[in-house]
Simulated assay, not measured.
Amino acid sequence: MSVLDTWTAAACDDLGLTPADVDVKAVLDVARDVAHNVVRPGAPVTAYLMGLAVGRGADPAEVAARLSSLALDWPGDGRE
């Protein structure tokens, strides 16, 4: 088990979730797309927004796809 897996399991346990509730790869992929194509601090903010949307009933895979698409189509060079 990796440190990330251990952390995810511990965080899920603390929040009353199960690791199966979390698509870690999708969250990391979205964070990468935002960090590389928009701005680095946008990655954790976007992950939070993703969680809010999913918590309000949105489909996790659809949210991830929409946010990655938005980030990949973002104009500019990703620098502030």
Results as ranks from 00 to 15, higher is better:
Met1Phe: 12
Met1Ser: 15
Ser2Gln: 10
Thr6Lys: 12
Thr6Asp: 14
Trp7Lys: 01
Trp7Gln: 09
Ala9Asp: 14
Ala9Ser: 12
Ala10Glu: 15
Ala10Tyr: 12
Ala10His: 12
Ala10Gly: 03
Cys12Leu: 06
Cys12Tyr: 11
Asp14Lys: 12
Asp14Val: 08
Leu15Arg: 03
Gly16Glu: 12
Leu17Lys: 07
Ala20Glu: 13
Asp21Met: 09
Asp21Arg: 03
Asp21Val: 03
Asp21Tyr: 08
Val22Tyr: 10
Val22Gly: 06
Val22Gln: 09
Val24Trp: 02
Val24Gln: 04
Val24Gly: 03
Lys25Glu: 15
Lys25Asn: 10
Ala26Arg: 04
Ala26Lys: 05
Ala26Ile: 04
Ala26Thr: 01
Leu28Lys: 09
Leu28Asn: 14
Asp29Ile: 02
Asp29Phe: 05
Asp29Cys: 08
Asp29Thr: 11
Val30Lys: 03
Val30Leu: 10
Val30Asp: 06
Val30Cys: 07
Val30Gln: 02
Val30Thr: 11
Ala31Glu: 04
Arg32Ile: 01
Arg32Phe: 06
Asp33Ile: 00
Val34Leu: 04
Val34Glu: 03
Ala35Tyr: 06
Ala35Phe: 08
His36Pro: 00
Asn37Thr: 02
Val38Pro: 05
Val39Glu: 11
Val39Ser: 01
Val39Lys: 01
Arg40Asn: 11
Arg40Ser: 14
Pro41Ala: 04
Gly42Ala: 00
Ala43Trp: 10
Ala43Cys: 05
Pro44Asn: 09
Val45Leu: 15
Val45Pro: 02
Thr46Cys: 03
Thr46Trp: 01
Ala47Glu: 08
Tyr48Arg: 13
Leu49Asp: 02
Leu49Ile: 07
Leu49Glu: 02
Gly51Tyr: 04
Leu52Thr: 12
Ala53Ile: 01
Val54Pro: 00
Arg56Tyr: 11
Ala58Ser: 14
Asp59Phe: 00
Asp59Lys: 00
Asp59Tyr: 00
Pro60Tyr: 14
Pro60Asn: 09
Pro60Val: 14
Ala61Gly: 07
Ala61Arg: 06
Glu62Thr: 02
Val63Gly: 13
Val63Glu: 10
Ala64Ile: 12
Arg66Trp: 10
Arg66Phe: 10
Arg66Glu: 15
Leu67Thr: 09
Leu67Trp: 10
Ser68Gln: 15
Ser68His: 13
Ser69Leu: 13
Leu70Gln: 03
Leu70Phe: 14
Leu70Tyr: 09
Leu70His: 04
Ala71Met: 01
Ala71Glu: 05
Ala71Phe: 01
Asp73Cys: 06
Asp73Asn: 11
Pro75Arg: 02
Pro75Asn: 03
Gly76Cys: 12
Gly76Ile: 08
Asp77Phe: 09
Asp77Thr: 13
Asp77Arg: 09
Arg79His: 14
Glu80Phe: 04
Glu80His: 05
Glu80Gly: 10
Glu80Lys: 05
